[in-house]
Amino acid sequence: MEGPANRTDRCELLTVCPASKLADFANDILADGAELSIRQAPRPQLLMQQVVEPVERRPFNLGEVVVTPAEVDLDGSRGFAIMPGKAERAALSGAIVDAAVAGGHPLTRQVLAALERAGERHRGERTREWAESKHTTVTFETLEDER
């Protein structure tokens, strides 16, 4: 991962950033008088999760995931965000933040820092979960070996 300045990475980091933080940024960006037009209104939609079954390596549809995408145009810069679940406010805020960073808004530095912190927190949680799971790694002994 290159970091939040990279558009693809930013899209991932927006999903782990608290919705309230994104909303604060979006409000601050709009308060500056930026011209906003909504290209795709935030609306819950379905994303079919396809998985490759490991034995025959055959893809199949596991089930659908509820996601909320949104797309905006902010002062001529386009922004996109997609959030897990029914999250209209977070998706719209995320798209505004994405567009603001793409357009070099004065708040860009603060946004990138917040996204980096969100990413670090998320990685920390994952690492801790992994360490907790590894803490339960067991070696099974068969009693037959001791007879």
């Binding site: 939609q45 079919m48 999760q49 396809q50 998985v51 893809p59 659908e64 996601v67 995408p69």
Partner: peptide, 8 residues
């Protein structure tokens, strides 16, 4: 339906 994911 928004899309299908890439097969994982």
């Amino acid at each position: 339906r928004f899309d299908e994911t890439r097969p994982t």
